[in-house]
């Protein structure tokens, strides 16, 4: 009996591991006459980190904005946890967004609030945590993870660009989301902090079994944090594979991304 139960649990666990949390199929999005996304297809598995590389303006940010329902796709299907995002009502969308962390390219800190209040905001407004001790603990843990504990009572206007980015990252991870969408988490940071952030992304993945899409131009970050790399060009993915596989690729368009790396 016990044996059977164990088998079943193992099966469940492995099923959970292969579970696809985000499934995008033939996604299209245009702005006016400009076709930004032409044919995006991507499956993100539970516990997997996918890095998206691609030149500026190819629609990487647009893709992840479609995932959280900020932008409405024009065609194709996009499901998160098996449910079509475009068909979600306000309530379902809210539930989805509670499970998905989103790091904006600009950080998007709330100007009128201190760093502490920025991190408290999703805890009190979304997760509705009322225990102040718990809130303090999570805020401090979050800030500690990005090395910003001493800036806790500062306003965003008093932070440097890199500090703002890290505060935005802390605000994204403080709610322990199941999926995290990082839009250029290391852009504008010095190499040492960049590496720390990349390692933090890896650590979060391992600790919480989170699945992530990481948009980046930072090859070091791609190397450290990725399980799989996609290269995007002209509204489609033109290459896919592990970092090493793509690194060895003979394809010129792919190799161009790896020229600096020996």
């Amino acid at each position: 009996m016990d044996q059977v139960k164990e088998d079943k649990e193992q099966k469940n666990a492995s099923k959970k591991k292969d579970e696809i949390v985000i499934s995008i199929n033939g996604l299209k999005k245009s702005f006016g006459t400009k076709d930004v996304l032409k044919d995006i297809t991507l499956d993100l598995k539970r516990g997997e980190n996918v890095v998206i590389l691609g030149r500026s303006g190819t629609g990487k940010s647009v893709t992840i904005q479609c995932i959280v329902g900020l932008l409405k796709p024009d065609g194709g299907s996009l499901t998160v946890f098996g449910e079509e995002v475009a068909e979600m009502g306000e309530k379902e969308l809210k539930e989805l967004r509670m499970k998905v962390g989103f790091l904006f390219q600009s950080g998007a800190l709330y100007d009128s609030m201190t760093v502490r209040e920025n991190l408290e905001f999703p805890l009190t407004r979304v997760l509705k945590i009322t225990d102040q001790a718990e809130i303090d603990k999570r805020v401090e843990e979050g800030l500690d993870a990005v090395g910003l504990l001493d800036a806790i009572d500062k306003l965003p206007s008093d932070l440097s660009g890199g500090m703002r980015k890290r505060a935005g990252l802390a605000r994204t991870i403080v709610i322990n989301p199941e999926i995290i969408l990082y839009d250029e988490p290391t852009t504008g940071l010095d190499p040492i902090t960049s590496r720390e952030i990349s390692e933090l992304i890896l650590k979060i993945q391992k600790q919480n079994q989170t699945s992530s899409i990481i948009i980046t131009h930072d090859m070091e970050c791609a190397r450290i944090a990725s399980d799989r790399v996609l290269i995007m060009d002209d509204g489609k993915y033109i290459a896919e594979g592990s970092f090493e596989e793509l690194h060895k690729s003979k394809n010129k368009a792919v190799a161009a991304y790896f020229t600096d790396i020996l």
Partner: peptide, 19 residues
């Protein structure tokens, strides 16, 4: 104030956080 929150994606950030 709200216009600049829109431009700097703070409104979007609030929206996607589920708030």
């Amino acid at each position: 104030e709200l216009g600049s929150m829109k431009v700097t994606e703070q409104l979007d950030a609030m929206e996607v956080s589920g708030a």
